[in-house]
Simulated scan of single mutants.
Amino acid sequence: MNAISLRAFNDNYIWLIGNGRQAVVVDPGDATPVLTALAERELALAAILITHHHHDHTGGVKQLLAQYPDVAVYAPAGERLPVPDAIALKEGDRVSLPALELELQVLEVPGHTLGHIAYYGNNMLFCGDTLFSGGCGRLFEGTPEQMYRSLSRLAALPGSTQVYCAHEYTQSNLAFCHAVEPGNTALLSYMKEVAKCRQQDVPTLPSSIERENAVNVFLRVAQPEVRAAAQMQALRELNEEHEIFAALRRWKDHF
């Protein structure tokens, strides 16, 4: 079983988890690349997983159901569901996918949107727009405190966990991380690796929790260099970690 990245729009990744016979798709904003990949690989669609309600993550659901009407759609209970009979998920629920011998735990990770969820299992994390490599999602609905708690939960997962983000933002995110923490040698090494990938038009994902904890400033607010940079940007002392996070997020919004 492996996860294949399917490109959509300018920089979205739709993830197709397949075992050679059947597949599950995560956040299909566009049905066309999914249908193409299923046909090319001779896979049957077993389920659709949604992390949040934004159209670039749900826009292809109805077209996929037109081709696969019996497929179950799983989506967050706290958000507008893409189809009326979607299976609503909340914290602690588990999605059992026997066709792939896969079980995924549901994590509520509000911040980008209020009902955002992530799927975790088999050493894989499908985190939508909550965590990016070197970054995190914008706060369209949630508060900095909510997003920081969500990111902290993900950062505490085993380091070997593979992180399947929903956008190819890595290179621009790392440029921001370098502005915040220029002395981070792990970051400098990763920037070189990512630059080579992008020159070859190769995806930079998946990342890993271990790597993100080493380079992603939004997970590194306790580091003295990160805190100092955030305070300089905010022009005041920041005592709480969520305050440092909030200052970094505001900085990144205009970087």
Rank of each mutant, 00 (worst) to 15 (best):
V24E: 01
C165M: 12
G20Y: 04
R227E: 03
S152F: 04
Q199F: 11
A3M: 04
L238Y: 06
N123D: 15
S172F: 07
P144F: 10
V95T: 08
M147L: 13
I4L: 14
E141S: 13
F218N: 08
I4D: 06
C177Q: 07
R249H: 11
I14C: 03
D27C: 12
Q146S: 12
A46I: 01
N12S: 15
F140A: 12
L45Y: 09
R138Y: 07
G142F: 11
A88W: 10
T161I: 05
R7W: 06
R41F: 00
P203N: 05
G115E: 08
E40P: 00
L81C: 11
L125K: 04
C197S: 11
I50C: 11
I14H: 05
N12W: 06
P76C: 03
G159L: 02
F255D: 06
D129T: 05
Y119D: 05
H54G: 00
L38Y: 12
M124P: 03
P224V: 03
L248W: 07
P76N: 08
A39H: 14
E210F: 09
P84C: 12
Y148L: 06
H242P: 00
V221Q: 02
I48D: 04
S172H: 11
A234C: 09
H112S: 12
R94H: 14
D129Q: 09
R236F: 01
L81G: 10
L89K: 09
E237G: 10
S208V: 08
M147C: 14
L100M: 01
Q146F: 02
L235D: 15
G128W: 10
T32N: 08
V194Y: 10
E91W: 00
G78L: 12
N216F: 03
L219Y: 10
C165L: 00
L102T: 05
K252E: 15
V194H: 13
N184Q: 05
V215A: 08
N123V: 02
V226N: 03
A247M: 08
F140S: 12
S172A: 14
S150E: 03
N10V: 07
M1R: 12
L187S: 07
T36E: 13
G159S: 07
